[in-house]
Amino acid sequence: MTSLRAAFWSIVGMSVLVFSVPAWASNDSPTDLLRGAINRARAVLENPTHQGKEHYQQRIAKVKETLISLFDSEEIAKRTLGIYWKDRTEAERKEFVQIFTALVEKTYANSLDRYRKDFEVLFDQERIEGDFAEVDSRIVDPVLQKTFSLNYHLHRLKDKWLVYDVVIENVSLVRNYRNQFHRILGKKSYADLVASIRTKIQQLDTAPQTGTGL
């Protein structure tokens, strides 16, 4: 039954692996964008030439390349800092976006290898209001007969739809990070928060990678 948890975390990884890199211009709807990128990421993960531990880095790099255009990394980082963002200098903001992006990438990269090809991805509804959109989706694990809700929050920036939050099983990742960061900033300095994130990144760098692919 540990596979249930594994399934959940692989879905988390699938959804939020890359909060980085610029977006492409497109007239596609938010759902079309998400569906297209997720399908391409799944194809990479299922590609026989990318299987095995020896291809881990290659596999993850390919998935990142596939998903990179979906996320607005600066907006996500800004929202996790919340009220503390305005106090940061331009240099600090740039640094924060960079280390937060690295944190998310490293956190979820390993989880991606728990992905199974029999997962079904269902898109249920899309809501658009001005320059904001929400896309509801579900991931169905047919083996465990479990469904995980996965909702994407997007905003339109210069005619591009970009994800600024992912809500997994009713938990917003932005809000969750924000609660962690605000707790730290409530007691310690901004430099301490940066140090904590850097330490976490180092821990993740040295953590064993267990995935072998499909």
Binding site: G82, F123, E126, R127, E134, H153, H155, N179
Partner: peptide, 21 residues
């Protein structure tokens, strides 16, 4: 799954990100 696309009237959570701790 009955996939639908619609423009919604519901308030989208666009500004919750600046909430207090």
């Amino acid at each position: 799954s009955g996939f639908t696309v619609s423009t919604a009237t519901a308030q989208l959570a666009s500004a919750d990100s600046m909430a207090e701790p």
